[in-house]
Design a protein around this nucleic acid. Sequence first.
DNA 1: TTTTGTATTTAAGCTTACTTAACTTTGTCT
DNA 2: AGACAAAGTTAAGTAAGCTTAAATACAAAA
Lengths: 219, 219
Amino acid sequence: MSVSIDNFLKNIYLLSQETGSSVTSSILAERLGISVAAVTDMARKLGRQGLLDYRPYRALMLSDKGRKMALKVIRKHRLWELFLYRVLGMDLMSVHEEAEKLEHHTSDKLMEHINRFLEHPDFDPHGDPIPGIGGNVPSEKGVVPLSEIEEQEKCKIKKLRYRDSEVSKMFETFGLRKDMVLKVLKVYSFDGSIELEFPDSKKVMISEKLADNIFCVKQ
Amino acid sequence: MSVSIDNFLKNIYLLSQETGSSVTSSILAERLGISVAAVTDMARKLGRQGLLDYRPYRALMLSDKGRKMALKVIRKHRLWELFLYRVLGMDLMSVHEEAEKLEHHTSDKLMEHINRFLEHPDFDPHGDPIPGIGGNVPSEKGVVPLSEIEEQEKCKIKKLRYRDSEVSKMFETFGLRKDMVLKVLKVYSFDGSIELEFPDSKKVMISEKLADNIFCVKQ
DNA sequence: TTTTGTATTTAAGCTTACTTAACTTTGTCT
DNA sequence: AGACAAAGTTAAGTAAGCTTAAATACAAAA
Ligand SMILES: [Mn+2]
Ligand SMILES: [Mn+2]
Ligand SMILES: [Mn+2]
Ligand SMILES: [Mn+2]
């Protein structure tokens, strides 16, 4: 399977997870940075190959076979991210883009060497679950968006969505990291911004949009 | 630069090192597993880009810029091989094919993380020199083909050419490894085969053709 | 039910990296 | 020098993965 097909299948899976709704050609085109026509072409092709349940004008749906392939690519991506972070000490802002390339050029054999070296981890350094070889995804029970935490309640960061380098920079600047414990001081309904207290009792204010990329468990 | 260009430049460099003579289109085509016409096409293109000093009907010659690029790919290849071998414990028969892919999809930044982790090594696990960032190649002074060792003389293996999986298997079977000390007992001029004595005084006979892929220093 | 706007598909064309087949150059042998 | 075979080049064509532009389907509003 080619890099294009890998990324196509992977991003259908990821988009449906992230948005919770169905994935259209135009949304996928936007995500992949290609034209909608190119998505249609590829969708028809992958439909014929049994990786997609393709119906013209309908949302894009992975077949079982397609989902398995997507999860395998995601497994490689997230294992690489953890490896680059933990073993080689690369920063969280870089590991994603390296993994984006390596995920397509790593044999199953090499991947299992890395998995063993890391002692069969369940989560990548951003807190995303690493699918198993069989396609089972580690549970994220209790993990909710930061916006669902009540005022005066404490929570622990479980996942940070490093969607681009700007967001990554903001996490860095605020000092937000996985497993950090936060207290939600106040939610301003005016614009949705949230005031947080850090473990060292430093206080900061973050926008609703940034908060949408932070996930945590109630403490 | 694309995978095709990487491999094109790299193999011109490697062939000229291995054979000591000039690299023709047909030799390179054979090595890359593509048609001679495809080589001509690419050579003309890379000539225009200043990576090759291309003259129709003449041997293929890298420009300074082209040689630098080739050495950079080789550096990545060999650092990956050592990393996969030493850190992840992959076998010597596998590391080459993994590195063959990874070499094209590794940023300079990632490569330097690996270089640091390995503590700036000079040689890969097969004994090939790892070019430096500037393009300087570690010296192999005193390293000669096994055929140049006199009868009754001792030598230490410095480099094994894992040219394909069959040769790799033979090294494995005979138990030939880097830094092993051998004694050349007898050279049979009939067919060039060589009788060797191992450190544990086990004796074996190897063909001239296999010996051509073993390099060592006199002890 | 008809209109209309948006989403999607189809069509035609481009680039890269290849192929095979026909043609040209080169170096060698007589 | 002339002829020849081998090596290299040129020409024409293919497949993947894209593009833009034109055509079509769908679904919501009138
Ligand atoms: Mn990632
Ligand atoms: Mn990718
Ligand atoms: Mn190698
Ligand atoms: Mn390669």
